[in-house]
Simulated assay, not measured.
Amino acid sequence: MMTKLTAVITVMMPMLAACKPAATAPAHDIPSAMKQAAATLLQSKLLHAASIAVVYRGKEFILHQGELETGKANPPNDTTLYEIGSVSKTFAGLLLANAVLDGNAALDDPVQKYLVGDYPNLEWQGQPVRLRHLVTHTSTMPGMLPSQVNAILKDFTAHATPAKLNSAYANYGQQQFWQDLHTVRINGPLGKDYAYSSAGTELIAHTLEKIYGMRYEDLLTQFIARKAGMHDTRLRLAAKDAGRLAPGYHSDNPVVTTPMPQLPWGAAGNLKSTMPDMAKYLRLQLGADPAVVESHKPLLRFQDDFSIGYFWNIGNNRQLGTHYVHHGGVPRAQSYAYVVPKYQLGVFIITNQSGDATAGAMESALAPVFDTVESMERAK
């Protein structure tokens, strides 16, 4: 969700991933490497807890460390629901990839095909915004709708930011989104420049609703349950599950902050999930499901080591080879998901704090995991 911060992170991550050496020699096994990663991460004074899921060549490992609230000795566990932020976008990309394979949509479809009403503003020099542009963040759509949210996020670390976001979205639903969409201006060539857009992701969710004739929320829940056995991942929480949602901290504010506000469809950043379910998602992403394979296809190359698929950022470096990565961030949590086919490795890491330095801390902390896997592979 964090438009400016996330845009920078998601562009840079594929080029930076796994390039930092571990502070110590690689561990001898995955659990030890995970403990080392968590210990490194929680050295950051603002971080309270961390959870890590690793799938490596068919084996699954989950680690929880720290305390969700300072001084309460309440560590996260396998039932804790985390807000995974913009990693949610990869789920929308997977659903669109499935629709493309089914012949229900084409990447070059104009988005206008799926909209009710006329939006002549969604074009550039006579060329329409297409689904391809939305999933590669090259539509030049604004980062967020309503537009005032983009201004709020420019000062993301200000203590007032979560309250301002809550106010902006308090009565903001799909009807208001459609009204605001009429005011959008496409300001540059389509399919060329990377401009991270959560608003574009929300349009993909609407497109999927039109294709399948059902709510995005229901479509997603049924799809991931069928494909991956994920039954504890959802966009909205029932009252009975509210107590399982991880509390979290914004910036350097010592007071627990409010959850991420609900977006019109939620595809851009509203998913909540447990670590066992995220391990199942990693397994799915490492498998041969046709929709997964389609979603990993590079649709646009920005640099030699950075392409983008169906919302997945695709990096390439010596250590990991071609890999898929996405950052997630909400006002009180940040996460990373990695899929590394070279090693049949998937990693998901999350912490219940969100600030300017959180992403970098997670990136550095994961170095022991990647170094250990590389060492184990060489030893075979």
Rank of each mutant, 00 (worst) to 15 (best):
residue 111 V to N: 03
residue 207 T to L: 07
residue 126 G to D: 07
residue 358 T to S: 14
residue 67 E to R: 00
residue 26 P to T: 08
residue 192 K to R: 10
residue 48 H to K: 02
residue 29 D to C: 11
residue 379 A to T: 07
residue 177 F to T: 05
residue 208 L to E: 11
residue 76 P to T: 02
residue 140 T to I: 00
residue 77 N to E: 01
residue 25 A to K: 09
residue 1 M to G: 03
residue 321 G to A: 08
residue 236 R to W: 11
residue 108 D to Q: 05
residue 117 G to E: 01
residue 162 P to E: 06
residue 330 V to M: 01
residue 174 Q to K: 11
residue 101 L to C: 04
residue 57 R to T: 12
residue 20 K to G: 07
residue 217 E to Q: 13
residue 377 E to A: 15
residue 369 V to A: 10
residue 320 L to E: 08
residue 343 Y to P: 10
residue 349 I to P: 13
residue 218 D to W: 09
residue 137 H to C: 09
residue 226 R to M: 04
residue 204 I to N: 08
residue 234 R to T: 15
residue 152 I to G: 11
residue 306 F to Q: 12
residue 142 P to N: 06
residue 97 A to S: 13
residue 363 E to C: 09
residue 233 T to G: 01
residue 213 G to L: 04
residue 277 D to H: 00
residue 266 G to P: 09
residue 232 D to E: 01
residue 365 A to G: 07
residue 7 A to R: 04
residue 340 V to I: 15
residue 66 G to K: 04
residue 193 D to N: 12
residue 319 Q to M: 14
residue 241 D to W: 13
residue 196 Y to Q: 03
residue 56 Y to C: 12
residue 35 K to A: 03
residue 63 L to I: 08
residue 81 L to W: 07
residue 163 A to S: 11
residue 331 P to M: 06
residue 297 K to C: 07
residue 180 D to A: 08
residue 158 A to V: 05
residue 57 R to H: 12
residue 161 T to E: 06
residue 81 L to E: 07
residue 174 Q to F: 05
residue 292 V to C: 08
residue 246 A to M: 11
residue 263 L to R: 05
residue 196 Y to K: 02
residue 14 P to F: 14
residue 199 A to D: 02
residue 11 V to L: 14
residue 3 T to E: 01
residue 23 A to P: 06
residue 172 Y to V: 10
residue 230 M to P: 00
residue 155 D to N: 13
residue 120 P to D: 02
residue 45 K to Y: 03
residue 145 L to C: 09
residue 190 L to K: 04
residue 148 Q to C: 14
residue 345 L to D: 08
residue 220 L to I: 02
residue 70 T to L: 04
residue 269 G to K: 04
residue 331 P to L: 06
residue 232 D to W: 02
residue 179 Q to M: 05
residue 14 P to E: 11
residue 345 L to C: 09
residue 90 T to K: 01
residue 221 T to Q: 14
residue 222 Q to R: 12
residue 310 Y to V: 15
residue 164 K to H: 12
residue 40 T to F: 10
residue 156 F to C: 01
residue 321 G to V: 12
residue 191 G to E: 09
residue 133 H to F: 05
residue 132 R to K: 15
residue 295 S to A: 13
residue 237 L to I: 13
residue 380 K to Q: 10
residue 187 N to G: 02
residue 27 A to L: 10
